[in-house]
Design a binder for these strands. Structure first.
Lengths: 244, 244
DNA sequence: CGGCGACACTGCTCTAGATCAGTCCATACT
DNA sequence: AGTATGGACTGATCTAGAGCAGTGTCGCCG
């Protein structure tokens, strides 16, 4: 293993736990079995119990649920370094489905491998528990957003959060980031109609806060946007590992 | 330690991992330092970084966030057996506050104790990771509810979910359960006004689906309610430990 | 080339649920 | 007994955002 090319997941976990060489090796080994998937392929079906998770190393995925009324609620987007379906390993059934938004690369991790790795390296377990907690914190923010924020603040918060996540794996900064999502994705994620998303994006663009266009998010007034969205980046910023 | 009186947390974790005597002892030992708190005392303040979590052994707590507009969003309720502020141990800051709804008993767990326990008993770490995942799954359900369900289905789903959680620690069944929440709590949790909650509860009562009154939830037509709410108990029902 | 599908964008109407402004009951306090 | 106080409950009005029905504009493919 060379230090030159570490995976996005490793990069992310290093922000939390200072892992030793043996732990790093085990972690890298976990996602050796890399595979490619094309747009549209369902990775895990709703209700299916596969006892395996994936580590996403390249591309974007969304996890969603189909509602009985036929609409879909996008629960979260996964970017490189994120787990797909960690819950389906721990809970017996997968509670939602995953669909690639772009072509992706992902490594399959067997439940047994994971539990095995935990026994060998408890600090690794802590790191992964941290990553899971962080994901939950994000879902909570998302929840709060849909519950109380109006459409403008909701969209603003979403774009900021995504930016922070991408920054953590080196795929964006305060200027902006590449983003392959359509307005329909935003609508399904934020519980708004695509039509309304469009109006909101136009408003944000016209007030110079942020531009979402041609697969590119460009921040015009970062601080203004943070204020509008009441964005609190504390739960993402770790500023150095907690565990030495 | 006697086997007669196991804690709600242990009871819950046993649904997932078959723990041996040493693990059980360590787990019980974790919540030895039990304390009581009265209604209204803020356990963890928003933004405060305390590096400690609590295990709730008796009573009800809500975790909430204050929005900039002064309203509060209740993120989740904790019932006996739940962790309070596990995230504030792992992330550096606590991202929301906790407030007892009833008088409670809780045991403080130092971050170091927890990480220590993980090293000694990796299977315990897995069990706690499971509990955290399950909590996340619930928050996700909650999120989906607020995003897409109408007020009636939202309330119905909430009452069903709470019932399932309580059943897991032996505090409720398909007939109903004791519930100290006010209509204002429901409103703050579900992103509806108290006024509207009241109307919805009346509707649910008048159609004979469920009664929420005098601190008691009574299911009238459990299956009808499940249908209305599109409630999927799969992520709570484990039907026996996954890990032997 | 023309046709088709995906996505962006617009104006209009309509409804779910918020907000306001109360009443009615308990229980607790003095 | 007299008065706060907190919760349940109601009707009238207001509004954000959905739903509908469309136009405009790419890029692709036969």
């Amino acid at each position: 293993m060379t230090a030159v090319e570490i995976s996005p997941l490793t990069r992310k976990l290093l922000a939390f736990v200072a892992l030793n060489d043996a732990e790093l090796a085990l972690l890298e080994q976990l996602h050796e079995r890399r595979r490619s998937f094309g747009i549209g392929a369902d990775l895990v079906h709703q209700g299916q119990s596969e006892r395996a998770a994936y580590i996403l190393s390249a591309g974007w995925v969304c996890s969603y649920k189909i509602q009985p009324d036929g609409t879909r609620q996008i629960v979260d987007f996964q970017v490189p370094g994120d787990f797909l379906g960690l819950r389906s390993v721990l809970l017996r059934t997968s509670d939602h489905a995953f669909e690639p938004i772009t072509d992706i690369q992902a490594a399959k991790v067997q439940a047994s491998d994971l539990i095995n790795a935990f026994s060998l390296m408890p600090r690794l377990a802590t790191a992964i528990l941290w990553a899971a907690s962080r994901d939950e914190a994000m879902v909570v923010e998302h929840l709060v957003g849909i519950g109380r924020r109006d459409a403008d603040a909701r969209v603003a918060h979403f774009l900021l959060e995504l930016g922070s996540r991408l920054a953590l794996v080196g795929m964006g900064d305060r200027a902006g980031y590449r983003c392959p999502l359509t307005q329909y994705h935003l609508a399904d994620a934020l519980g708004l109609s695509a039509v309304h998303i469009n109006r909101v994006l136009r408003r944000l663009r016209e007030t110079g806060l942020v531009t979402f266009r041609d697969g590119q998010v460009t921040f015009g007034d970062y601080r203004g946007l943070v204020r509008l969205a009441d964005f609190d980046p504390a739960y993402l910023d770790q500023s150095g590992p907690l565990l030495k």
